[in-house]
């Protein structure tokens, strides 16, 4: 902890939770995350957007759950023992669950360890990334939360 404080006086840092989606690792700003839960029974909601498999009961609250794989245009989820639902809490819009294949670790990245995303391609999933973080020799794509919650008609 002391180390972290001395660190932060020198340069700004942010913590990210690193998750596995498909074959890639993504970082989610820890500030948005309310909690992480194991996979639980998802109740299907008819006529909802395709990337919403349904809703779950999170300790007495109803929380919609999104399949980020579907939204990114990847093949659909395979639920395993490692599958987790990241519960994001976004002001004004309430809670939202995002299904990820696994949760790996928490990393602390300084601002100068993050590079803006310059790789432009036609892949839908690149629109969800707002930067690349360098953690040692590992590269982590940082997810843009707003892009995740934005409506996308063609998703």
């Amino acid at each position: 902890m002391t180390e972290y404080i001395t660190d932060s006086t020198e340069k700004e840092t942010k913590q990210y939770i690193v998750v596995q989606i498909g074959s890639e690792k993504y970082g989610i700003d820890i500030g948005y995350i309310d909690t992480i839960v194991r996979m639980s029974k998802i109740t299907r909601v008819p006529k909802a957007q395709v990337y919403f498999p349904g809703i779950i009961n999170l300790r007495g609250e109803v929380v919609p759950v999104m399949s980020i794989r579907t939204k990114m245009g990847l093949e659909s989820d395979v639920y395993t023992n490692a599958t987790r639902i990241i519960i994001l809490k976004i002001e004004d819009r309430g809670m939202l669950g995002v299904i990820v294949d696994a949760v790996c670790e928490v990393v602390t990245l300084a601002t100068d360890e993050v590079e803006p995303n310059n790789v432009h391609s036609n892949h839908t999933k690149d629109n969800f990334i707002n930067g690349i973080g360098k953690n040692g020799d590992q590269l982590i794509s940082l997810l843009e939360i707003n892009a995740i919650i934005e409506e996308k008609d063609n998703a």
Partner: peptide
Amino acid sequence: IKSLGKYINGNKLISGATILGDGEVAL
């Protein structure tokens, strides 16, 4: 009655959800 939240839309047929005794969610 619990709201479905602001994310899921285009759904007039479902007015909300509720949590049943066994923890299951029903629409």
